[in-house]
Each structure stands twice: as C-alpha cells, then as structure tokens.
C-alpha cells in the first residue's frame, strides 16, 4: 500500500482509463439488469450488453445529416470521454495520482463546465431540430445545476482549507465529510447525474425529442457519446470519494482498493436511483436549483465555515 511507484505518465493514464472504463461498463450492465428485472424480462442480454453494443456501433457506419457541422459535432461527442478522464486525473488512488494539482477541485469544476460546451456542440452540430432542442435543454439544466454544484464543491475545500484533492482526502481522518456535509454531498451527486445527462436529467436526450442530442448520432460517434456519458457518471462518483467519502481510508484493503470500491458503491447507488424518479423538465429544475438547492448549499457552506472557524 502506497508504494512510491511512479509509472510513466502514459502508463498512469492507461490505468486510469481502464479503471474508468471498467466502472462505466459495470454501470451499463447494472442499469440493464435493473431495467430487465423491472419489466420482468430475462436479464441475460443485459450482461453482455456493453460488448454487444460496442460491436454494433463499431460495425455501424457513421452518418451525418445534411449540412451538419461535423467538426464541432464530433468535437462535442468525442470530448465527453476526455473530460471524464481529465476529471479522474486528479483523483488520488491511495497514494498514487496522475496529476497532483494543488487546485484539483478547481480543475474538476473546469472539466464539468467544459461539459456544457461539449453537450451543446453535440446538439448543435447535427443541424437537426430535435438535436438542437436537446442542446437548449442541456443549457437550461446547466444553468440550474451548475451553481449549486460549484458551491457543493466549496464545502469540502473549506472544511480541509485546501483545494488540493489529496489534502481534502487526508483531512477526513476521523470523520468523513459526507457525515457533516450531507447537503453538499447530495447536491454534488445531483450535479454529477446532471452533467452525465442521466436519470432525471435525461430530457436533453429524451424520447419526446427522438433522443435529442443523440437523435442523429450513429456508429462510432454514438459510441463515443454514450460511453462518454457513462464515463462522466463514473468519474463523478470517483471524485466524490476523496471529496466526501474519506478517500482511500479503510481497514484491511490498500488505499487504492478502497477508492475503487467506494466509487463503485456510489455509482451503483446512482444507477439504482434512476428508475425511481421521473425526468425533470428544465423549467422545473431551474426553480428547484435556484430556490431550493442554491440556498441550501450556501447554508451548508456557512455551517462548514463556522465549524472550521470555531475549531480555529
């Protein structure tokens, strides 16, 4: 545990990408199994779904609508997975981290804001009404979830008096931040689900607009976007571990194993939760985001700041 191994940068990125892909794949399988069970069907097809779907989309030809802005369209679609990978770059696996930034929290926030542009470009580039409406919807959702998410990230940073993700993880030696920052944690999880265009935040890819931002995607373009969404969900779950769930601390297992395990559990919870909620139309989310979540998370920040000042 915590061997000072410093593999080359490429090696580290490959390991992080493989872990992220494994988590995302597990999420796809779990979602498929839960879906099949809720409809009383066999869950067998869901077990091999990731492999089959990848095969299908690799075999499918990519097709662009008339006058599509293919450059921007594909930047948007391909960028989602990259953003997810850049998010986990600052997540410490025990002692080991790809990029030990002293402003890791800000880095994560930058990536999740970059998702705004990426999803919008995916909607815009296809030159199709449904796709564009999906893009609009995402921006409307983003206006609602982003500020609460930012202030949710502030709470652990204030609690640890650092923007360095490793220091934040280390500051939770005795008490995980999730215990005394539950509001920030809940809002953070909502933000993760939202920037993954997932669960209640699916309207940008909703079936009422024939798949919205996804409607014109085919072949490898579709594969990148779908994989990117799951990767973002997995990356968001992984980042919660050092922020709220005590990082790599835990008995018996080495630190990196705890990080992976906690990420997987949180990810599974997010996947499970999806089926229980209807999707939220952007105008409703706007109201909740600004009237409920933002004040709540600001109060949480205030409480954390008071506690930190009290402790001196």
């Amino acid at each position: 545990m915590g061997e000072a191994v410093t593999p080359g940068l490429l090696g580290s990125v490959a390991v992080a990408a493989a872990l992220l892909a494994a988590l995302a794949t597990a999420a796809v399988v779990l979602d498929g199994v839960l879906g099949a069970r809720s409809e009383g069907r066999s869950s067998r097809p869901a077990l091999t779904r990731p492999v089959d779907e990848v095969a299908r989309l690799l075999r499918q030809r990519r097709r662009a609508p008339l006058s599509a802005d293919t450059l921007l369209w594909r930047i948007g679609g391909g960028g989602l997975g990259v953003a997810a990978l850049l998010m986990v770059a600052v997540v410490p696996l025990g002692e080991w981290v790809i990029a030990d930034l002293d402003v890791g929290v800000v880095w994560f926030n930058t990536m999740d804001v970059a998702v705004w542009a990426l999803v919008w470009l995916t909607g815009w580039g296809a030159n199709s009404v449904h796709s564009l409406v999906g893009g609009y919807r995402f921006l409307a959702l983003a206006l609602a979830y982003e500020l609460p998410l930012m202030f949710a990230l502030v709470a652990p940073a204030v609690g640890a008096a650092s923007l360095d993700v490793r220091e934040i993880a280390a500051a939770q030696g005795s008490l995980w931040f999730v215990v005394w920052m539950p509001v920030a944690f809940a809002v953070y999880c909502l933000g993760v689900v939202a920037f993954s265009v997932w669960g209640p935040f699916t309207p940008p890819a909703g079936s009422d607009v024939a798949g919205g931002v996804l409607s014109e995607l085919s072949g490898v373009d579709r594969l990148l976007v779908q994989a990117g969404r799951y990767a973002l969900l997995a990356a968001g779950a992984a980042f919660a571990v050092p922020m709220f769930l005590g990082g790599g601390s835990g008995p018996l297992l080495p630190g990196w194993a705890w990080v992976v395990l906690k990420s997987a559990v949180l990810l599974a919870a997010l996947v499970w939760l999806r089926r229980r909620l209807p999707s939220a139309r952007p105008d409703l989310v706007m109201e909740v985001g600004w009237v409920v979540l933002l004040p709540a998370v600001l109060l949480q920040d205030l409480a954390v700041a008071v506690v930190v000042a009290w402790r001196g």
Binding site: P45, T48, D52, E53, A55, R56, L58, R59, Q60
Partner: peptide
C-alpha cells in the same frame, strides 16, 4: 463482431 452486434439490435 456481426453476431455480437445483432444481439443488441
């Protein structure tokens, strides 16, 4: 690949 792909049609 084709056989796998068809399973996810």
């Amino acid at each position: 690949l084709a056989r796998r792909a068809v399973r996810a049609s």
